[in-house]
Each structure stands twice: as C-alpha cells, then as structure tokens.
Nucleic acid binder design. Sequence first.
RNA 1: GCUCGCUUAGCUCAGGCGGUAGAGCACUUCAUUGGUAAUGAAGAGGUCCCCGGUUCAACUCCGGGAGUGAGCACCA
Length: 645
Amino acid sequence: MPKITLPDGSVREFDKPVSVADIAMDIGPGLAKAALAGRVAGELVDTSYVVSDDAEVALVTERDDDGLEVIRHSCAHLMAQAVQRLFPKAQVTIGPVIEDGFFYDFAFERPFTPEDLEAIEKTMKDIVKEDLQVERSVMSRADAVAHFKSIGEEYKVEIIESIPGEEELSFYKQGDFMDLCRGPHVPSTGKFKAFKLTSVAGAYWRGDANNAMLQRIYGTAWGSKADLKLYLQRLEEAEKRDHRKLGKQLELFHFQEEAPGMPFWHPRGWILYQAIQDYMQQVQRKHDYKEINTPQLVDYSLWEKSGHAAKFADEMFSVESDNRMYAIKPMNCPCHIQVFNQGLKSYRDLPLRLAEFGSCHRYEPSGSMHGLMRVRSFVQDDGHIFCTEDQIQSEVAEFMDLLFAVYRDFGFDEILLRLSTRPEKRVGSDDLWDKAEQSLKDALNATGLKWELLPGEGAFYGPKIEYSLKDCMGRIQQCGTIQVDFFLPERLGAQYVAEDSSRKTPVMLHRAILGSFERFIGVLIEHYAGAMPTWLSPVQAVLLNITDKQADYVLKTQENLKNQGFRVDADLRNEKVGFKIREHTLQKTPYMLVVGDKEVESGTIAVRTRGGEDLGTMTIDEFSSHLRQDVAQFGRSGAQLESDK
RNA sequence: GCUCGCUUAGCUCAGGCGGUAGAGCACUUCAUUGGUAAUGAAGAGGUCCCCGGUUCAACUCCGGGAGUGAGCACCA
C-alpha cells in the first residue's frame, strides 16, 4: 500500500504498487502526457518504474534540468536508431549527454556527409511520428554479449565486457532498435519536440589516439522549439563575439601562413596588450615581485638537465648555430632558477618572488591551435616564488588575494577553483605531499569559496591549483594557476643557507594569473564583445568635427587630452558626422566627442558614448574628470565599486 | 598529429557541365561643409592558397603540400 509524497508535500495513497506513469495519471492527464521520467527517493527512474513502498516521488518533465537530460539522452538513441535505419552497416558505440545536447559515435565504412545529416534528421522526425514505445529490459552479461555478437555490434560487446561485476544490465528497446543503457529514457519516441543535428567529426574510440577513428555526430535537443531557438541564437551571439573575427574588425592583430599560431600585433592590439602588461607590472611590483628577463635561446643541455627535453622534445623549437644546439624556451622556470642560483642565497632572502613577462614558443600540434586561445608563441605573466616548505601556505594565500583582485579589475567576478593532488607517478616524499596538499587546501578553504578536488591530476613534481573564470556567455576559461614544485629546484641545483647554516633546497611555486597574454586577451575580447572597458580601450575617445571650420579646435583639444594621458583620436575626415559616429561606434570607441560651431564658441564638446547615450555638452575639464573616473574603475562591476569606496 | 570541410579583390562573399571572374564595403580622385549609426559620382584594384599531373585549354578535374574551421587527441 504505497504512500506517495509529492514535492509539494501532498500525499497520495494507492492500494497496490503503482508505476510513476500511474502516479502522474492520478494527478492529472496533462501531467501524465508531460511526464518523461520520475525521481523516486532521489533516484532518476523511467515512468514505467513501479513503486511498491512508501516513497517521495517527483515527476520529471521537459521543464526540469533532469527532464532535459533525459530528452537529450533519449535523443541520442533516437539518432542512433535513425542512423541504423539508413545505414544498417553502421555500428553503434557510445552516445552520452553533453552540455546543451548529445552525441553518438558510430563505426562506419565512410564519414557522414552534411547530406547524410539531413537524411538522419528527417528519419529521426519520422520515428518521432511513429511514437514507438521505449521499453526497458534486463539481461545477463552473457546473454547481452551473445545478443550483440549475433547482430555484429562488436563495440557494444567490448563495452559490455568491460563493465565490471556480474549484475544484470539494462537495455532500452524502441521498435527494432535496442541499446545498452543505464537510462532512464522517455516513455516513447513521440516525446521529442525540438532537436537538431549540428555537426559531424572524427573521434577516437575510447578517446585514445591509438584506436580507430569513429564518426561522431553532434546534436542538440530541448524541451521546446522556443528553447532550441534561444540556443541557436546563443550560438550566433558567440560567433559574433569570436575574438578572431573581432580581432580583424577592430584591427587588433592578424595571423598569416608564414607564422602559424604566432600573432602579429597591430597598433591598436598592442596598446591593449601593453595596457594589460603595464597594469600587471604595477600590481606585481606592489606585491614584492622582482621582475627579470631571461634569454629566448638557451643551450639544449639546460633542457636536458631540467628534464623537459626528455618529455617535450617534439614540442620544442630548436635552433642550431655554430655547432651548438639551442632550444627556444618553451617556459621560463629553468631560467629563473639560473637567476636564483647566482650568488649565495640565505633563508633571509626567502620568499624570493621572481617575475617575467616571458616570451615562450611551443610547437603545439597543428590541430590544437585556435586563434589567440592556443598559439605557438605567447607571453606568460610568469612568476616563480622560491620559499621554504613552511612558507607555502602563506605564499599561496597571498597569491590568491592578488589573483582575485586582478580578476575583479578585469571584470570577472565568478571564479572556479580546482585542486589537483598527487598522481601515482611522482617525486618527493609522502610527508612533503601531505604538507603541500594541506597548504593548498587551507588556502582554498580560507577563500570561503567552493572548490573542486581532482585526485591524481597533479603534476609529477607537485600539487596545483587552477583558476578558471566564467565569462559573460557562461563559458569557463582556465587562466591562472599556482603549482608547488619539489623537483626542479633540486634538479637544477638551487640551494639556500638555512638558519643552522646547512644547505637546503627551496620549494618553488610556479604561478600565473592571466596565463598567457594572448589567451587572456582572447578571453577579454569575447567577454566584452570587443567593447573594452575604457582603461583598456585602444582609443578612449575620438573627436569629430562637423565641418572643416572646427579642425583647429579639435586638434587643440586632442593635444590637451593627450597631454593628460588619454588615448584620443581626431577624425577630421570630410564626412558627415553621422557617418563618423557609425564608424567609431563599430570600432567600439568608448566616447565620441562632437565639435561644431556651438562647441567651439562655448569651449565645450558634445559627448556621446558608444552605447548611443548622449551625455550632453561639457567643458574639456568636465569631460577629462569623467574619463579619469571611468579609467580608474577598471573593469570592475558597479557592485564592487561601491564596496571599494 | 587524426577525421571531415573550407581557401576567389584589402574585408565580407557570389560565380561558372574546363574557354583566365563579379557584387557590396574599403581604397583613390572629384563634387559636396553636411549636428549624432552609411552624401553623390567616377576610377583603380585579382598568380581564383602553393607545387605537380591530365587536357588544345585548369581558378574549375586528379595527386601532393600549406594554412584555416569544427571535433578528437595533446597542452610542461
């Protein structure tokens, strides 16, 4: 006699075991139709699941996140069924849910074409019309293996054989299509309202480049057509913000064949780049970093000593000159240790914080490059802190304060933290790892923020924290990091004299806030859709004359503002003011300063923002104090400005 | 690196069963001096990514390469 408690607290009693679908029907036919799955005592189940004991039951519809997940998962099955209907020779492998959609990997004799995708989508729609029941069943492993062997699904056989344990496995059948699956799934194929196949690409079986390449089809699925439309609009918006596109439009940088993965910075882009570097320089100086600069080319033997050559030889550029082999540095840390090693260091010198805007080159695999986000030449806001084991925690804590402050200044408020701990293959004693991991955990906990633990994901030389920020499109971008290193200082002979006058090896903390300038600028461009906060804007204001008559006044005003340290252009072209406004709006210049006879006469300018707002007519002094204030707030959001006061 | 697609004027893109090509914007010149998202006219501008092959003829077809896009793999 199950007593069912619904999420609103109401209780329904039944005189015999009931399925989730029965419960929905009991509440109302509308809900019965909308029900995609259920949640019984916290577990997500099919609507056919039978409840025989008292339980808390919630019905899952397309409006729940759970419902969406069920739709997407079932949609992957729907697609697989369509593919096999059209291409009986295609073997199914796996088809999970991903963010905003799903994919399914197939083994097929040839790649799928865009035309195939259309046909598949059409067949999917046919199957939706057929409204096939989706039925769950269980089978023993042996039976399942025999079944899939008999129909030639070798990959499924491999999957089943790799599932540990002897318990029964669940299967879902719709029409003539059956797939191994944990479920739950929608009750019938008629439940899909909005889906679209988006792309096709190769993907390795089991994610291993040594395995066969499968054909992966991506799709997206939503609870309603409106949601699908919103999603497609979001993709369009992301495309508009693409930093590669904006980089060209705003004349920030370009790439060309002769230097793949290595940006050519244009005047405007370089101003942006330098504004960021100036800022970082200032901030780091304030936090007692000593900035240094080390060579681009370093004899290959150093990289052999550091151990990098053994691991990354293929990814390093090298140069031969005068019978010596040099590597173009792929990272700065070995060089920083060389600086540390000059002169005898005392424990009194620690912590020693060395920073470098170090230009590095790495031969990234061709397929991995992506605009500024992944390049072959880049500059890191790199820093290495040499300290004692006891100083790790305070150094990490201090670094995190700095990192949060910097991210806030760039306009990022939401930061994700992840701690990666000891991997199986590692150097250093367990005591040392215990201590280092604990230091990082303490520093993380001190922030009061949630953080994620990635056990075993640390580097072989020490644990690390990675900092990702969420941009305004909700995308997660990994930028900063701090890594404890027990290995390299010893390997490269770094030592200091301790209080007891013994020689000890310092711990090294590798750290970066922005990561690489290139990548960070890519993130900034997309976050701001190219409309940089004023402090970063390549041009902060542009003066527009209405007729030639105001040219002298414009030039004088430009000179005045430039002398105050602002980046101000003058657009004296023989064009109508509407045309100039349009152009500078498209160039995302924060302020447009219109000058006509009236303004010349009264010694003022008419100020318009790139957002189209009219700030009215003001004197040059009034404007420059407005601009100064705008620049001083960096990219910080309004809320934080309040707390800063 | 792997799979598939793409590469035509400075930019965004058309185009043709194989007969060397076009638009808009930008650029130059001229007219116009116009008050908040495009003033008008004329002109100039091309190794159709590169190297081979097939062909009377290749931007177009075939082979190889480069770059690039999506995804996979990689990311000290």
